[in-house]
């Protein structure tokens, strides 16, 4: 039996902050992240309410897989034909971990979209190599290689500040 709209809303409210964090780390800015989260919620909503077929077995994992696939799919569809624009001042970065966020965003900007998605799934969501590979449609070996490459790139971009960021 399909789950109810109330249950979906409850699920969405509970998961949106974490989905948004992942989306922000993948997209690097608020507006694209918001769009990605809403697209993800829309897809989960449709699947959630489908009358035929079994209900989603693991909604949290399904939502995060959908987020990653939607991100990669959008990158493949649109990245090469949209006019690049600089990061606009979407919010005022103040206090707390704003410096960390800015430094990390600049470093993540150096990574390929797939590498960003791998890092977010592996390290923010703590998804296994096999499940990351399945979510992104690549081999486990490619996930490992991309992880190594992405971490190397982060170290190269952040340089000594990486150690500071990790220690502070």
């Amino acid at each position: 039996m399909p789950r109810t709209s109330e249950e979906f809303e409850e699920f969405a409210v509970a998961r949106t902050p974490q989905l948004y964090r992942a989306a922000w780390l993948m997209c690097g800015e608020a507006h694209r992240a918001e769009d990605l989260v809403q697209e993800t919620l829309a897809k989960v909503y449709v699947r959630w309410h489908r009358r035929l077929g079994a209900p989603i077995e693991h909604p949290v994992a399904y939502a995060h897989t959908t987020l990653a696939r939607t991100y990669i799919s959008a990158q493949r569809r649109r990245s090469n034909h949209e006019t690049p624009s600089e990061h606009l001042p979407e919010t005022v970065e103040t206090g707390g971990d704003a410096a960390t966020r800015l430094a990390l965003r600049e470093a993540l900007d150096e990574l390929a979209p797939m590498d960003r998605a791998v890092l977010v799934l592996r390290y923010l969501e703590d998804v296994s190599v096999a499940d990351t590979a399945d979510a992104l449609g690549v081999s486990p070996g490619a996930v490992r290689n991309r992880t190594i490459r992405a971490l190397d790139r982060l170290r190269a971009v952040l340089g000594p500040s990486l150690r500071d960021l990790l220690e502070t």
């Binding site: 969405a12 949106t16 902050p17 992240a33 809403q38 919620l41 909503y45 960390t100 390290y123 971490l151």
Partner: peptide
């Protein structure tokens, strides 16, 4: 350490959850 870094960089982001959920439901419908 990388996990901590990613979490610290994103933990205090404050999305408008209600707006995003409403938008997601609207798109879903």
């Amino acid at each position: 350490g990388v996990t901590d870094l990613l979490r610290r960089a994103s933990d205090d982001l404050t999305p408008d959850v209600d707006r995003l959920v409403r938008g997601g439901i609207s798109r879903g419908r």
